[in-house]
Amino acid sequence: MYERLMKLIKENLPDKDLSNAKPESRLIEDLGMDSIGMMMLSMSIEDEFGVTFDAPVTFKTVQDVLDFLAKNATK
């Protein structure tokens, strides 16, 4: 699941070197995601993992996303 998620993050951050990214990396402060990027990432996550967001995503770290997916992913 981690690799699948990092692939989506990389697609949204093509200019960033994510080789040192870790589960505790913060999406905005450490990886450089902006608000539109977060929205596009949430849409990619919906498609990839079969989840639905009915509110703006408030994930702080990669681990937050993984925790959410562990509970809610359907594929």
């Binding site: 697609e11 539109i36 990027g37 929205m39 596009m40 849409m43």
Partner: peptide, 16 residues
Amino acid sequence: LLVGTLRYLLDEKRTR
């Protein structure tokens, strides 16, 4: 308008 476009009208390549 940008958010609406992202949500409903993104192209197949998911271009920003």
